[in-house]
Computed example of a mutant assay.
Amino acid sequence: MKITIIGGSGFIGTRLMNLLKDESKYTLHNIDLRQSHFFPEVTQIGDVRKQEDMDTMLAGADAVVLLAAQHRDDVRPLSAYYETNVGGMECTLRAMEKNGVKRLIFFSSVSVYGLNKNNPNETAAPDPFNDYGKSKWQAEQVLFEWMKEHADWNVTVIRPTVIFGERNRGNVYNLLRQISSGRFLMVGNGKNLKSMAYVGNVVAFVKFLLENKTSSGCEVFNYIDKPDYNMNDLVTLVEQSLNKHIPSTHFPYWLGMAGGYCFDAIAWLMRRKLTVSSVRVKKFCATTQFDSTKAMNSGFLPPYTMEEGLRRTLEFEFVHPREDDIEFVTE
């Protein structure tokens, strides 16, 4: 099976290729705007927004994993979300049809549900609150509309929650780093639940789908590793993993948001991106809990527990000396 990964030079794609590389039944092909740090020999520079690139580069593929996306919460102009996330879907589908490829795994996001929802499953109504979520939902709609005329295709949509793991430089890493530093400021009471997913489990789920989902049609799966941790739980786990006391000071939500708006103003004046913003404070304090019953009832068994994933990440990032400085910036 020749698997073409679009956007595979990043965090998830690198781990997926690392998982599949020793399987003799797979041939890997990566298409990305950037060269892969670890898999340059199978990487071809291409742009998911350019139809001619996709038409040429999807030749010979048996399955496509579409990872390419604008995903940070500070992308400007906002139209970039739609050009890549929606336009990239349209180019990919047309190229797949041209090359006779009928199998697709698309990475969407739980952001299509919005914030502070009551543990939504795959049937919950979409209510995205930002342009990233809106563009992912629009990409899904393009795909669902396409499937009306392509019922013989084998399509899976994965809506993962925030994904963390070794080498990732996203919100979970920033949180773990702040906690481990001992300079952690807790906004709110710390009881808000956070659904998360360890990258080792996410890519294992993709492998499971490639090997076990053989029927035509379109299925949607949330992907979350359970149990959900709240912020206080995370502080405790970091303390145990690093064997250090982590002092934490709680600040009321209104004060945290006021500080976030101040950082927004500073960032605007300086024309620079800062690590603190009102959007990130809002996301930090929100309950982001999602249902993953469907994925966990599919026959898939995650190779790591949530605690194992968090401990592996903490040990890699903050305990063992690094042999290189390769990192992947996400949200």
Rank of each mutant, 00 (worst) to 15 (best):
Q44I: 15
P40E: 06
L33F: 05
N18C: 11
L28F: 07
T27C: 13
T27I: 13
D22C: 08
Q35H: 07
N18I: 02
E23F: 08
F39H: 09
I31Q: 10
I45V: 13
L20D: 07
H29I: 04
D32W: 00
L19S: 14
N18A: 09
H29C: 14
T43E: 02
I31M: 07
D22Y: 14
L19R: 15
Y26P: 00
S36K: 06
D32R: 12
S36C: 02
F39I: 01
K21R: 12
D32H: 06
M17L: 11
L19P: 08
L16Y: 04
D22A: 12
I45W: 07
S36M: 04
L28E: 08
V42W: 00
N18Q: 15
R34C: 06
F39T: 02
K25I: 14
P40L: 08
Q44M: 03
S24A: 14
L33N: 12
L16V: 10
R15I: 02
I31C: 12
H37A: 10
K25F: 02
R15Y: 13
N30S: 13
K25G: 03
Q35P: 01
E23C: 11
K25S: 15
S24I: 09
M17F: 00
H37V: 01
L28S: 05
F39Q: 01
R34D: 09
R34T: 03
K21G: 05
N18D: 15
Y26H: 04
Q35F: 02
H37S: 12
T43M: 06
T43W: 03
P40S: 09
H29W: 06
S24D: 15
D22I: 09
F39E: 04
I31E: 11
E23P: 00
F39L: 02
S24H: 05
T27S: 14
L19F: 08
I45K: 05
Q44R: 12
V42K: 01
E41D: 12
P40R: 04
N30Q: 08
P40K: 11
L33C: 12
E41R: 03
R34A: 13
Q44P: 00
R15G: 03
Q35E: 14
H37W: 02
D22M: 08
L28W: 05
R15F: 13
Q44F: 10
T27F: 07
Y26C: 09
L28T: 00
L20S: 11
R15N: 15
E41I: 10
E23L: 08
E41A: 13
Q44Y: 05
K25C: 12
K25V: 12
S36D: 05
I45G: 10
S24E: 15
R15S: 10
L28D: 04
E23Y: 13
L33Y: 02
F39D: 05
N30C: 12
K25R: 15
L20K: 09
Q44T: 15
F39G: 01
S36G: 02
V42M: 11
F39Y: 14
H29Q: 14
D22E: 14
H29P: 05
I31D: 11
D32V: 06
T43H: 09
D32I: 07
K21P: 01
L16C: 10
E23T: 09
Y26E: 05
S36T: 01
F39M: 04
F38K: 01
I45N: 03
K25A: 08
T27W: 03
S24N: 14
Y26A: 06
Q35A: 09
I31L: 14
K21Y: 03
S36A: 01
V42E: 03
D22P: 04
F38V: 00
M17E: 08
Q35Y: 02
S24C: 11
